[in-house]
């Protein structure tokens, strides 16, 4: 294509121009990111060290998020949601954001079903961990990876 030659030579002047332009862009400093350990510590705090089961949590997350500013996160948990047997709380965490917490939800039997959907910010490709707390004090969790791409002009 005709513009190839134009683009193949990024001169020093161009590079410097880009660099100065970059200076005008707002950066919030160099952020520290949470990691698996931060999430593990968080889970330990929530569960009090009790064992966490797997399964019965259905996650609805995009495999690839074109933009990390609003990524759908939805889950549903199979539960009768009766006074004797219901999901009390769900914690959504992310291991690659500046802090691991995303949101938590408190459910009641009046809802009849356990699910929720929201939109979250993801700083980069990372794992989303969903931890559910049952009314009997037991826990279960599920996780999935969301690949976050950063736009050329959009990002």
């Amino acid at each position: 294509m005709k513009q190839t030659t134009q683009f193949s030579s990024i001169s020093r002047r161009h590079a410097l121009a880009m660099l100065s332009a970059a200076g005008a862009v707002v950066l919030a400093g160099v952020p520290a990111y949470a990691d698996g350990a931060a999430v593990a510590a968080k889970i330990k705090g929530l569960t009090g060290g009790r064992s966490v089961g797997e399964g019965d949590i259905e996650l609805d997350l995009p495999e690839i998020a074109e933009n990390g500013n609003a990524v759908k996160v939805a889950f549903s948990i199979n539960s009768p949601m009766t006074v004797d047997n219901y999901v009390k709380a769900v914690h959504v965490m992310a291991d690659g954001n500046p802090t691991p917490d995303v949101a938590s939800f408190n459910f009641t039997p009046a809802m009849g079903a356990c699910s929720a959907s929201t939109r979250m910010r993801l700083a980069k490709t990372q794992n989303i961990i969903v931890l559910a707390e049952m009314n009997d004090g037991s826990f279960k969790q599920a996780q999935a990876t969301v690949k976050v791409t950063i736009g050329g002009c959009g990002g």
Binding site: Q3, T4, F7, I10, M18, A21, A22, C153
Partner: peptide, 19 residues
């Protein structure tokens, strides 16, 4: 980081033209 973004922007257009 923005510098890298911009250079990659230009480079990916070259790649776009080549493939």
């Amino acid at each position: 980081m923005r510098l890298a973004v911009t250079i990659t922007m230009a480079l990916s257009l070259i790649a776009g033209a080549a493939f």
